[in-house]
C-alpha cells in the first residue's frame, strides 16, 4: 500500500515496528509523520495479533527524495519503535585526500547538553556535522572537521538504527 502523497524516490529504507500498534494508534501516528515530513511509504507486511495481548508487527519501506529527508524520517520514527530491518553491516566509505570535508553521505549527529556551572544552567549545542566513524571495528561519533584521509566513515542507512 502506497500513501499516494508522493512518487517513490530513489532513496529508501525498510523498517519494522512491533507492538500494540493498532490499539495504541502507533501505526496511524507513524504514517502521519511520514507524510508530514515529505516522505512516502509502502506497507510490505502486516501481522495483526489475534488476541488482545498479542503484539502486531509491520514491515514498511520508507521513501524520500534525498538523504536528508530519509535521515529525518528515520530519526523521527525511531521513538515509535521503527527500527531499520537490516542484517547487513553498516556501509563504509574511506575518506580520500581530496574530500576535505565529509562525503555527501556522511551522517549528521546533533549534540545538545545542558551544563551546570557556577553561572547556572547553560545549553550547549553543536549541530554538526558529526560523522559516524569506524576505528578498529569500533563505531564512534567524531566531528567532521577531525576527519583525515584514510579514515573510515559510515554512510547510508543500512546497518544503522536511530
Amino acid at each position: 500500500m502506497m500513501s499516494g502523497i508522493a512518487e517513490p524516490a530513489g532513496l529508501s529504507a525498510t523498517v519494522e515496528l512491533k507492538g500494540h500498534l493498532i490499539d495504541s494508534l502507533t501505526l496511524s501516528k507513524v504514517v502521519d509523520r511520514v507524510q508530514q515530513l515529505g516522505g512516502d511509504y509502502q506497507l510490505n507486511d502486516i501481522h495483526v495479533g489475534s488476541l488482545k495481548k498479542d503484539i502486531s508487527s509491520i514491515n514498511m519501506t520508507l521513501y524520500a527524495q534525498d538523504q536528508i529527508t530519509l535521515d529525518r524520517l528515520l530519526e523521527a520514527l525511531a521513538p515509535y519503535g521503527a527500527v531499520a530491518n537490516s542484517d547487513q553491516e553498516a556501509s563504509r566509505t574511506v575518506v580520500c585526500e581530496q574530500d576535505g570535508q565529509p562525503p555527501a553521505m556522511a551522517f549528521g549527529v546533533k549534540l545538545r547538553r545542558r551544563v551546570h556551572t557556577a553561572q547556572g544552567w547553560q545549553t550547549v549545542e553543536n549541530g554538526g556535522p558529526w560523522v559516524l566513524s569506524l576505528e578498529n571495528g569500533v563505531p564512534k561519533v567524531k566531528p567532521a572537521c577531525a576527519l583525515k584521509a584514510g579514515d573510515t566513515v559510515l554512510s547510508g542507512t543500512s546497518g544503522l538504527q536511530w
Binding site: 512491533k18 507492538g19 500494540h20
Partner: peptide
C-alpha cells in the same frame, strides 16, 4: 508512557513478562 524516559521497545518486553496488552502513550 514513552519517549521522554522510557523507550517504546520496552513495551513489547512488558507484554512478554506479564502477558498483558500495553497501550503506548507518547
Amino acid at each position: 508512557g514513552y519517549k521522554t524516559r522510557t523507550d517504546i521497545a520496552s513495551h513489547n518486553l512488558l507484554t512478554a513478562a506479564t502477558s498483558l496488552p500495553v497501550l503506548s502513550l507518547e
